[in-house]
């Protein structure tokens, strides 16, 4: 088997992912916040220590996740597209290698949330009759090029299913 696909994602991906992960973690931190409020204003029966321990461990875990997960994810991610196939590799703990014959592609699109936009990045989504795949966080121009490339190859190898 050949080595990993050769193209990497944009280097800014890590920064963008850090922010989205951070937002998600802040959302998780609302759980202990509710517990605190419940403790102070409601008839809280939970021990302060339990809540404190929960908060501290959540903060530590969030910190580690925000620091390392986007980095690992970026390092794992690579992709390669030629006229016959799309080859993707991704994963944090579980490494997944995916092969999509270009003929099978039904449609490709690029999408961009507010965080990605501020870094000038976009996701490319590839759909077949059975599956959906995503190449995340590419530079806008690269994303457009990738999308057009896939759609051109797919048109060349047109098929019914």
């Amino acid at each position: 088997m050949r080595t990993s696909p050769k193209n990497k994602l944009s280097a800014s991906a890590v920064k963008a992912w850090r922010i989205s992960t951070l937002l998600f973690m802040l959302f998780l931190l609302s759980i202990p916040l509710f517990l605190w409020m419940y403790h102070y204003f409601g008839a809280g029966t939970l021990s302060v220590w339990v809540i404190l321990a929960l908060t501290i461990s959540l903060v530590i875990i969030s910190g580690l996740v925000v620091l390392f997960v986007p980095e690992i994810r970026w390092r794992r991610w690579s992709y390669q597209i030629d006229e016959h196939e799309i080859d993707l590799q991704s994963g944090i703990l579980i490494v997944t290698r995916t092969l999509v014959p270009v003929k099978r592609v039904q449609h490709v699109d690029t999408r961009q949330g507010p965080i990605l936009r501020s870094y000038g990045l976009a996701d490319v989504t590839i759909s077949t009759a059975a599956t959906t795949h995503r190449i995340p966080a590419l530079e806008e121009e690269t994303a457009d090029a990738v999308r057009d490339r896939i759609s051109k190859f797919a048109r060349l190898a047109k098929e019914d299913v």
């Binding site: 703990l93 579980i94 490494v95 997944t96 290698r97 995916t98 092969l99 999509v100 014959p101 003929k103 099978r104 077949t128 009759a129 059975a130 599956t131 795949h133 299913v161």
Partner: peptide, 28 residues
């Protein structure tokens, strides 16, 4: 020519044993 995608998967436990899951997707 009917496969929509193929996938190889490996989790850390499998890595240690040098094993992989092989998956084939078809439309249905």
């Amino acid at each position: 020519y009917r496969t929509q995608a193929a996938e190889l998967k490996e989790n850390p436990f499998q890595s240690r044993l040098e094993l992989k899951d092989f998956t084939v997707y078809v439309a249905s």
